[in-house]
Design a protein around this nucleic acid. Structure first.
Length: 802
RNA sequence: GCCGGUGUGUCGGAAUGGCAGACGAGGCAGACUCAAAAUCUGUUGUGGGCAACCACGUGCGGGUUCAAGUCCCGCCACCGGCACCA
């Protein structure tokens, strides 16, 4: 009899052995085939590890361990995305330096991750707050600056009047500060911006060659929001200036009945003297300016606006004079800040026209424009549209665009919803921006030799009243000399956002200790791109887009060897509390992974998290389910007592063995860990039913289970006296021919309804199969047979009439 | 409103158009035990029938097919994201 299964007695022991033997170190042998598996590195929060973390980590740990057993040189690294607001706020509240808070949190996280037995290569651990790391974050920023992709711009930010602090959009809830409930207003500040829009086309087009799950691609495309249309110049009566608009429906130009300017449109001030109802316009504009984003969207349903008296636009296609309105449903930040309104074929324009009694002209047949805007572009023929009348929408678009170009009143134009990236934070705990401002020379980049520009060790990192970064108070640090002219200059006091460090960290893992470059060209050439990257859906449009942007830029600069950082991207679902709600302290449904490891063991936690359900869907925690997985591992442990001699598979289980290898192998590849584990549970049940397992069967079984439950299997491997370590074993292969039984149970149906089963040879002829089926049906088979269907190995269906 | 996702036993969840409910949990019955826990064995969709068996059953309504949880059309509910992008 074996001793009882005691995870505590074996898990720490094997973790230490693996560490000592450098079992999972990626080697520098660039002749071997490589595999780079990556999970998003965590933000080391003060709460410690959440049970959500192990889900993706275990999933790719399974893939990494399997790849090693398949002979790959595997890179599976881990690190810390440690700059950020929560640490800074905690530091302020508790009067501990953020560096120390980070250090403590990282230590705790690392200890917790270690206790789960992940095969991370800990020699490559990185930390975004390490000056040796952020030196290269700053280096990339300088490259962006020199390439003209980093620039300063006036931008409104969210300002909490009570905390006196700039807030991220996510920190503004229902128009008030998330933390104190204080009023949030918009303040205009000069901010560093990154020109991600310069890569908008590539960020969409290059998705085609990538193995990303479809919904990630769709989200990225929608976020970038590319549209094709035309810019058209409307003349303004008795004026030289043209009113330029953007439209995706130039084909509807004959249906324009009015124009709308955004309240921020420069023409309003420009033509102030001509506007007869200036007071009314000014009042509307002020009202719009006062609205927060929240209020603007709340009031989105009810359109508001004021006609501008004294200005009249002229439609270039037919010379018709049309009124110009001002309304906040037109945004200054998209297109030209002005639109042509076609109420017959645009829902917003239709709503506005109905409210203010403006005319509606039908120019595309197919709907009833008095009832609703007709926006279908697939069907419909142009009417009331001069030379376009009679054309289909697609043809009309092309014809009118040609006409606009020919008559020099418009051009084809492509637009994006994507905005440039606001890259400044008025905070202490982030990477300093390596720029100084000189009165004479303007914004001057620090020379590379001065990197890293370290965060000064301030006494107080409290936010200031003025909305400036706490760094601004550090006059010794701020006042410097200009690298260009040597005159007095001031350092930039804003820091980078948390997204900066995570936008290139996957490159650093390939060569984490390099002092000469962010990574050596050889390491990058060998390891990149990442073969499989898994992370949360919440990072689809921010982190994933930002890091692709940086990578593409570095590719254009010749720093990295490939245009895309990640070949494959998958996403995991959330783990919810037992009540099906998101885990949170206030709901009291938080499960601490440490407790599960203590009570059941790391292997049980790993197995359960993989068994809980489909990997990409959210799943509710169940303590009973955890117990079931522990019970399974107990049964695995006791297989040792059933072992009999024999390196081969026993004849009655041979097929089952080959089937299970095939199933587990393919399920691990397609993230179907729950069914892989179910298959292994089924196999264990068979061993018990039979009452014995050969050494050869157990050996294969241990390898299959190892990626999920590495400690128990490694221990059993040793106890059974198999050669070497289990982590060094080779992944088993199956024989396709041996995955099929000689005889098979086939369902028998009559008129498509189940009537029983027959056991026949797997390659039985149709005649034999039908004969067997008819015998099984016996007297129940009556009436005239009209059709007989036989799908070998699957089903026999006899269709009768009468 | 738009985009994406999800609806299957008591619960978590399985099912290349081919035996719905694998696997796990829970329940019930039994074995072991003085007893309980643990463990082991059996059983477990609903209704009818002593039984063989029959009928019904994958959110709702239609359809295609010899055969639909799966494909098509039209809805409903819930979850997540975006929100006047011309």
């Amino acid at each position: 009899m074996s001793t009882a299964y005691e995870p505590k007695a074996i898990e720490k022991k094997w973790q230490d052995i693996w560490q000592e033997e450098k079992a999972f170190a990626a080697t520098e042998d660039y002749t071997k085939p490589k595999y780079y598996a990556l999970v998003e590195f965590p933000y080391p929060s003060g709460q410690g590890l959440h049970v959500g973390h192990p889900r993706p980590y275990t999933a790719l740990d399974i893939v990494a361990r399997k790849r090693r057993m398949q002979g790959y040189n595997v890179l599976y690294p881990m690190g810390w995305d440690a700059f950020g607001l929560p640490t800074e706020n905690y530091a302020i509240k508790n009067h501990i330096h953020p560096r120390i808070v980070t250090h403590n949190n990282v230590a705790r996280f690392k200890q917790q991750l270690m206790s789960l037995g992940y095969s991370f290569d800990w020699d490559r651990e990185i930390n975004t707050t390490d000056p040796n790391y952020y030196k290269w974050t700053q280096w990339i920023f300088l490259k962006l600056f020199k390439a003209g992709l980093a620039y300063k711009s006036e931008m409104p930010i969210n300002w909490c009047t009570s905390c006196k602090v700039g807030l991220a959009n996510e920190e503004v809830v229902n128009g008030v500060c998330e933390r104190c409930g204080g009023e949030v207003v918009r303040r205009v500040r000069s901010q560093w911006m990154l020109k991600i829009t310069a890569y908008a086309d590539k960020l969409i087009d290059d998705l085609d060659g990538l193995d990303y799950i479809e919904r990630v691609k769709v989200s990225q495309k929608n976020w970038i929001g590319r549209s094709y249309g035309a810019e058209v110049d409307f003349s303004i009566k008795d004026k030289e200036e043209k009113l330029r608009i953007y439209t995706t429906r130039p084909d509807t130009l004959f249906g324009v009945t009015y124009m709308v300017l955004s309240p921020e449109h420069p023409y309003i001030d420009k033509f102030r003297d001509e506007i007869e109802n200036w007071d009314e316009i000014a009042a509307y504009r002020e009202q719009a300016a006062r609205k927060s984003d929240f209020e603007r969207s709340e009031l989105a349903k009810e359109k508001t606006g004021v006609p501008i008296k004294g200005l009249v636009a002229v439609n270039p296609v037919n010379g018709k004079e049309i009124p110009i309105w001002i309304s906040d449903y037109v945004l200054m930040s998209y297109g030209t800040g002005a639109i042509m309104a076609v109420p017959g074929h645009d829902e917003r324009d239709w709503e506005f026209a109905k409210k203010f009694g403006l005319p509606i002209i039908e120019v595309v047949a197919g709907g009833n424009v008095e009832e609703a805007a007709f926006t279908d572009v697939a069907t419909g023929t142009l009417v009331n549209s001069g030379f376009l009348t009679g054309m289909e929408v697609a043809d009309a678009k092309k014809a009118i665009t040609d006409w606009l170009v020919e008559n020099k009143v418009g051009t084809p134009k492509k637009n994006f919803k994507l905005r440039d990236w606001v890259f400044s934070r008025q905070r202490y705990w982030g990477e300093p921006i390596p720029i100084v401002k000189c009165e004479k020379c303007g914004y001057v980049p620090l020379p590379e030799s001065e990197l890293p520009l370290k965060l000064p060790d301030v006494e107080s990192y409290m936010p200031t009243d003025t909305g400036e970064s706490p760094l601004a108070a550090m006059t010794d640090w701020v006042n410097t000399t200009c690298p260009c002219c040597g005159g007095p200059a001031k350092r930039e006091t804003d820091t980078m956002p948390q997204w900066a460090g995570s936008s290139w960290y996957f490159l650093r893992y390939t060569d984490p200790h390099n002092d000469e470059a962010l990574a050596s060209p050889e390491a990058l050439k060998y390891w990149m791109p990442v073969d499989w990257y898994n992370g949360g859906m919440e990072h689809t449009t921010l982190h994933l887009l930002y890091s692709r942007f940086w990578h593409k830029f570095l590719y254009d600069e010749g720093v990295v060897p490939c245009p895309e950082p990640y070949q494959k991207r998958t996403s995991h679902g959330m783990i919810l509390g037992e009540n099906g709600e998101k885990m949170s302290k206030s709901r009291g449904n938080v499960v601490n992974p440490d407790d599960i490891v203590n009570e059941f063991g790391a292997d049980t936690l790993r197995t359960y998290e993989m068994f809980i359900g489909a990997f990409d869907l959210s799943a509710s925690w169940s303590q009973e389910g955890v117990k079931g997985c522990r019970r399974f591992l107990d049964r695995v442990w006791k297989l040792q007592d059933l072992t009999v001699d024999g390196d081969a598979y026993s004849s009655d289980l041979e097929t089952k063995m080959h089937q299970t290898i095939k199933k587990v192998d393919s399920d691990y590849e397609s993230l179907k860990f729950n069914t892989a584990i179910a298959a292994m549970m089924g196999l264990v049940n068979q061993f018990y039913k039979k009452g014995s397992i050969t050494r050869g069967e157990l050996r294969t079984f241990l390898i299959l289970l190892n990626p999920v439950a590495p400690h128990i299997t490694e221990q059993m491997w040793q106890d059974m006296g198999y050669e070497g370590r289990l982590y060094q074993a080779s992944w088993p292969v199956y024989d396709e021919a041996k995955t099929v039984e000689n005889t098979v149970e086939v369902a028998v149906q009559m008129n498509g309804k189940m009537r029983g089963t027959v056991t026949i040879a797997v390659d039985a002829s149709k005649e034999d199969a039908l004969a067997a089926a008819k015998e099984a049906l016996g007297t129940r088979l009556k009436g005239e047979i009209v059709k007989e269907i036989y799908v070998p190995g699957r089903i026999i269906n006899i269709v009768v009439k009468g």
